[in-house]
């Protein structure tokens, strides 16, 4: 367990000192969202109707941006070989790196989302569903993305390839995340959507680190 804490602290410290990933992802999120009014027109009703979809799709794409860096730097400078040779289980290693990734990119996105929802005129009663949905959904994005990031290590055009592999797998999260916001906006209960997102998060927590660890080991072979 100490390996987990040490790796988490190391990754957080690296992210804080370099600082660029978090800022880039947030900037992308804001710019991508603010492009939509130019594309679909600035009528407040139109924007309110598609706000949930815009925010979720932008969050998905923003998560993709930073994921290909998840293991890349450690793979290139050889740290990954040492980490895999360490006594800590590789699944814990993946968990620590995924948690650090979520804390530095997913969580800021969740915190920023109400502000962007304001720009898109999302109905006020939908805010809890948006925030709760993103809070449950973004860790799944990171966990599934960790599998993809481990698979494309050493590939040509890894970043583009990663989006081809991972985006289709994100579709269920998008469906239930947007579904929760839309249900809340029309005054229906959104508990079911959140429960399903929670179930997917638990499933991803149980399976994804294991699969990503297998993928890492075969990448380091």
């Amino acid at each position: 367990m100490s390996g987990f804490g040490a790796l988490l602290r190391r990754d957080l410290r690296l992210a804080l000192r370099q600082g660029s990933d978090t800022a880039t992802v947030l900037a992308f999120f804001v710019i991508a969202v603010s492009l939509f009014p130019f594309g679909v027109g600035a009528e407040r009703e139109t924007l309110a109707a598609i706000a949930a979809g815009i925010l979720w799709v932008a969050a998905l794409l923003a998560a993709m941006l930073s994921l290909d860096r998840l293991f890349q730097a450690d793979y290139e400078d050889g740290t990954l070989d040492y980490l895999l040779a360490a006594p800590a289980a590789p699944t814990l290693l993946v968990m620590a790196k995924a948690l650090a990734h979520w804390l530095t990119t997913g969580l800021p996105l969740v915190i920023l989302s109400p502000l962007l929802a304001l720009l898109l005129n999302l109905p006020q009663k939908a805010y809890p569903a948006l925030i709760a949905g993103l809070a449950l959904g973004t860790p799944i994005l990171t966990l599934i993305g960790a599998i993809g990031a481990a698979l494309v290590l050493g590939a040509r055009r890894g970043g583009v390839l990663l989006s081809l592999l991972i985006l289709p797998l994100y579709i269920p999260i998008l469906i239930f995340g947007v579904g929760a916001v839309e249900a809340a906006a029309t005054g229906q209960g959104f508990r079911v959507h959140l429960l399903l997102l929670g179930a997917m998060l638990l499933g991803a927590l149980a399976l994804a680190p294991f699969v990503a660890a297998v993928a890492l080991r075969q990448a380091a072979e």
Partner: peptide, 18 residues
């Protein structure tokens, strides 16, 4: 795409299998 993304075909095959 993953199968053909690596210079070493064996590596691509393992990644694609996962």
């Amino acid at each position: 795409a993953l199968t053909h993304a690596f210079d070493d075909p064996a590596r691509g095959a393992r990644a694609a299998a996962i």
